[in-house]
Structures are given as C-alpha cells and as structure tokens.
Amino acid sequence: MKKNITFKVNGTEHSVEVEPRELLIHVIREKISMTGSHIGCDTSSCGACTILVDGKSAKSCTLLAVQANGKEITTVEGLATAEGLHPIQEGFHLNHALHCGFCTPGMMMRAIEMLEKNPNPTEEEIRWGIAGNLCRCTGYNNIVKAIQWASAKMQDKELPSTEPEFV
C-alpha cells in the first residue's frame, strides 16, 4: 500500500516512502524534518501550513504527500539565500508583522505568490490575498505593511518607513 515518492524541497531532492493517506505537511515536518511550516487547524482554514508547490501557494494539510510526487516544493526554510533574507522576511521583521511567529511562515509563503502575480497590490487586494491565513496576534495591520514594504523592495522602489505610526 505504501508508495515511493520523489520531490524537491527547497532545491534538494528527497525520496520517501509514505502511506497514501499521509498529509504533505506531516511528511515535510516529520520525514524531511523541516518544521518551519505549521499545523493550526484540521479544516483547511488557518493557512499555517502554506508552502509553495511548483510556485503555487498551497495548504499542505489538504494535500496528500503522494500528490507531491515529482513536484518542487518551497518552504520557509528555503527563502533566505547566501545573500541574505528574502524581502518578505525582511519586511515582516522590519514592520513588526509577527508576534508569536506561528502563522508567519505560512503567511509569508502566501504573500510571496501574491506578489509574484500582483507586484503592486492595494491594501484591499492584500487583505483578500491573505484571507486564507489566520493570525491571532497582530491584527493584520503590520502584515499589510510588511507586504507593501516587500513589494517596494522587490521592485527596487523607494522603501516605505518602518517606524510605527503611533500618534
């Protein structure tokens, strides 16, 4: 009943044996030992498990690992390079877009695909774009700011201030 699957995670090829029912998130966390992607619900509601599958943001709690056979996967662990942090990581840090950090990896992975498709999203588009990711800590204001900051950075535009607008 078990299947052998092969996929790339952050550029490295992995072959693992899985039961068909094994969820991709469990395989990534427990068999590939990359624990940056999280599990926050059981109904595909929270988005903490969001990763990129062939560049598309995906809830890896709702994909079977067998479905990832032959795919390229990117997780939060694959964002930073030798040159430094990914602009979205920098944006989240500089704009205080995380508190407990649990939703952060999924939120960033979703934001990356959104910015790829729409490099200059409006605030409204950002809010709808991350509607599949729950954050219980930040109230979302600074997540919106972080994504706007990353958008500017990725296009070499003038960077918005990262000082808090605290009257």
Binding site: S44, T50, A58, L63, R110, E113, A131, G132, N133
Partner: peptide, 8 residues
C-alpha cells in the same frame, strides 16, 4: 474559500 484553496 481562499486563494490557496482556489489554486487547487
């Protein structure tokens, strides 16, 4: 649903 769900 949401963008991730609509991707699949």
């Amino acid at each position: 649903a949401d963008p991730q769900v609509r991707n699949f």
